[in-house]
Computed example of a mutant assay.
Amino acid sequence: MELKFVKRDVLKEKPTDETKLGFGRIFTDYMLMMKRDGERGWYSAQIEPYGDLQLSPAALVLHYAQEVFEGMKAYKTDDGRVLMFRPWDNIKRLATSAERICMAPFDQEFVLNSLYELIKMEKDWIPTSPGTSLYIRPTYIGVDPFVGVQPAKEYLLYVILSPVGAYYASGLSPVQIYVESKYVRAVKGGTGHHKTGGNYAASLLAGEKAHEKGYDQVLWLDGKENKYVEEVGSMNIFFKIKGELVTPMLAGSILPGITRASIIELAKDMGIPVTERRISMEEIYEASLDGSLEEVFGSGTAAVVSPVGELIWEDKHIIVNGGKMGETTQKLYDTLTGIQYGRIPDKFGWTVEVK
């Protein structure tokens, strides 16, 4: 399949004040669009002007949520190069998520190379202020105009780009986490370990209630016993206990985060012991009482690392490191972002220069 280009008549005006970018509200001139139907297979791929989609009101995605997506970033280095961080892993995870909800396979190498072409074209949209980046949202949806529960035959796979500001506009401050004991996010055998929109819709109610109570995020527990930690909102979670990093193991209901995997490899390289296992809130609470709970942080594409200053579980307030970010959390954040922005040599082979 050939990648075509459709030129925009008039280019948008790019943001001039990068302190006001926010997150996910401004979009670039172009997007990548691929189409598929049951007879021709994948028959169209082009970089075209960013614009609204035309869908039938009966499109399957609107009724039965046959949709998967990814989140990734492009970074501008101090010397003007454009870097991406493990993009092949995002495309692979997109394909795995699509397979889980019975969507047609796509050529991962073609999609990745087409994405590189889009980034090259839109590189002037990548902001350069500290902490800023170009957020990349690949999305794959079923669009058959048919109201009936069945896998789609017609699909759109598209990628949009958004220049975004620093996730922590006022600095890397620890957040307050509400441990959800009533609702569950996912169960083993479901779709919790894939990046599909329904998972996030199911999390909204608990998130709103947590915000109403003054908390920043929700920590989800397992769907069977409601006692073992799973993940935080859109992030994976890590606990430092007696010098060891502990994170919930991947057992079919937790998203296999790419930042999570990077944190694990990076920590081991630093000589920090890492264990992936089940960990209960009772164990975390007891560790906070005896002083062995040293640090807590989340990991994900948007924030990279998000320090946790307090956990609220069944009216118990678990204060972490005096409510301050820990030394290990800071070191992991500085090192990982240093690699992403090209300030630290990448000995892991995680970054790729788009040129």
Rank of each mutant, 00 (worst) to 15 (best):
L255I: 07
R278K: 13
K324R: 14
Y50E: 08
L53A: 13
T301F: 00
K240M: 14
I160F: 05
L332W: 00
D315P: 06
R93K: 12
E231T: 03
F238M: 11
G233W: 02
Y285I: 11
A210P: 10
I312S: 14
V179D: 01
L289A: 11
P130C: 07
E18M: 03
N321F: 04
E70G: 04
V61H: 06
V229M: 11
Y200K: 10
V147P: 03
T28G: 02
G298T: 00
A59K: 07
W88S: 15
Q217H: 15
I136S: 08
S280H: 03
G142T: 04
E276C: 02
H211A: 15
V82L: 11
M34K: 04
A74C: 09
V296I: 10
G298E: 01
L21N: 02
L32E: 03
K35T: 05
Y75E: 12
E39Y: 02
K316P: 02
A206P: 05
V304G: 03
L266A: 03
E122R: 10
L204Y: 10
A104G: 06
I177T: 09
G342Q: 09
A186F: 04
Q176T: 10
G148S: 12
L115P: 00
P138G: 09
K355D: 14
G323C: 09
A65N: 13
P174F: 00
W313R: 07
I312F: 13
P105L: 09
T328S: 06
P15V: 03
D29C: 03
G207P: 08
A287H: 06
W350G: 05
I284H: 01
Q217W: 05
R100M: 11
P256S: 08
E265K: 12
E13W: 00
E286W: 09
A287G: 08
